Simulated assay, not measured.
Amino acid sequence: MKLVASPDVQASQPTVQISLSRVGVTGVEKVIRVAHQLFWARLECFVDLGPRQKGAHMSRFEETVNDVIGEVILNEEAFRAEMLAVRIAELVRERQGALRAEVTIAARYPEYKPAPVSGIRTQEIYTMFGGAVAAESGTRRLVGVAAQGMTACPCAQQLVAGAARERLDEHGFSDDQIEQILDDVPVATHNQRGLGTLHIGCPEDCDVELDAEALLGIVENSMSSEIYELMKRSDEGAVVEKAHRRPRFVEDCVREMVLGVVDELPILTDQHFVSARQENLETIHQHNVVAERFGLLGELRHELGTGEHAARHTSMREWMDGRG
C-alpha cells in the first residue's frame, strides 16, 4: 500500500494573514536531577509567528525541552536555569524556523543552612528563575531568585516607642535612661512575611556567570531578618530580635536589593538589567503591600550616585525585546 504524506498544516497560509507576537506552550513541568540534586521546573516556550504561517509545531517544543534536559543531565555539574533556557530558546528558534524564541523557567529546589544560634540543620525551599530570548542579534538571558524573609514595620515601632517614652517619663526615668532602655530592649512592632524577588538580565555576548547563592544572599539580607523552617527557642529569639533591630518598609527592602547588586556585583556593566520586587504579607491588614524597581544598571548607578530621579525605568519586557 502506498503511503500518502500528510500535509504540513502548520506551514500553510492562515485565512487571516497577520503575525502573532507569541505562540507556544505553558505549564510544562519537569523533574530534573543534576549532580544528585532534584529540581522541580516549570517552563514556558514561545516563538513569534509570521503572517504567512498558520501555526507553530507544538510537539517540537516538548521534544526540544526533553532533548536539552538530557544534555544538562549528562554534561553539567550544577543546574543553571538561565543556561537551560538559553539552550532551549536557541534550539526552539532553529527547529521552528522563527525569527525569535522566548523561554522562561521557574525551578524549585532545596538548600540546607544552619539555624542562627543552635546551628541545627534546616531545609529551605528556594526558587531559581531562568529566561532567554534568542533572536538574529543574539541571545539575551535572565537569571533570578526568590526568597522569603521577615520584615518589621518601622512606623508602628516608632508609635510604640513614643508611648513607652511617655510611660517611662511618668515613672521618673531620665531622658538618658529612657534612651538606654529603648536601645537595650527591642521595641515591639507588627511584622510581615516578606517575599523578595531579584532578576538580573545579561545582554548578548555577555560571559558573566551569576551565582544564584549570591543573589539569594542579596535578597535575604534586604529584609529585616532571614527566616528558618526549623528553629530552637534560642534561634527564634535571635530572629525576632534581629528583625526588630532592623525595621524596614517594603520600599526599604527593594532599595537594599538594588544597593546590594551595585555593591556586591561590580563586574556587571551598565547594560545589565535589574528587577527587584518585594511583597509583604500584612498581619494587621487584610491587604498586602508591594514595591518594585526595574531598569538598566546604568540608570540605577546614576541615580544612586547623583540622587537625581531617573526619568527612564526600562521594564523587563522592553529589555527582553531588545528595546532597552
Results as ranks from 00 to 15, higher is better:
Leu3Ala: 11
Val4Ile: 15
Ser12Lys: 13
Thr15Asn: 11
Val16His: 04
Ser19Lys: 13
Val28Gln: 07
Lys30Cys: 08
Val31Leu: 05
Arg42Ala: 11
Leu49Met: 13
Pro51Lys: 14
Arg52Ala: 02
Gln53Phe: 09
Asn66Val: 07
Val72Thr: 07
Glu77His: 11
Ala78Gln: 15
Arg80Cys: 10
Arg80Asp: 12
Glu102Met: 07
Thr104Ile: 01
Tyr109Trp: 03
Tyr112Leu: 10
Ala115Gln: 07
Ser118Met: 12
Ile120Lys: 11
Thr122Glu: 03
Gln123Trp: 02
Ile125Gly: 00
Ile125Phe: 08
Phe129Trp: 12
Ser137Leu: 05
Arg140Pro: 02
Val143Phe: 03
Gly144Thr: 12
Gly144Arg: 11
Val145Trp: 07
Ala146Trp: 08
Ala147Ile: 08
Thr151Phe: 07
Pro154Ala: 06
Ala156Ile: 09
Leu159Asp: 02
Arg165Ser: 06
Asp169Gln: 14
Glu170Ser: 14
Ser174His: 06
Asp175His: 10
Gln177Asn: 13
Ile181Val: 15
Asp184Pro: 00
Pro186Glu: 09
Gly194Cys: 12
Leu195Asn: 07
Gly196Glu: 06
Leu198His: 12
Cys202Glu: 09
Leu210Phe: 09
Glu213Gly: 09
Ile218Lys: 11
Ser224His: 12
Ser224Phe: 13
Ile227Pro: 00
Leu230His: 08
Val239Lys: 01
Glu241Ala: 15
Cys253Val: 15
Val254Trp: 01
Pro266Gly: 03
Phe273Ile: 04
Phe273His: 05
Ala276Asp: 00
Asn280Gln: 10
Asn280Glu: 09
Val290Arg: 12
Val290His: 06
Ala291Glu: 04
Glu292Pro: 00
Gly295Cys: 05
Gly298Trp: 05
Arg301Tyr: 02
Arg301Ser: 04
Arg301Pro: 01
His302Asp: 08
Glu303Tyr: 02
Leu304Phe: 13
Thr306His: 07
Glu308Gln: 14
Glu308Ser: 05
Ala311Gln: 11
Arg312Phe: 01
His313Leu: 06
Met316Ala: 12
Glu318Pro: 00
Gly322Glu: 06
Gly322Leu: 09
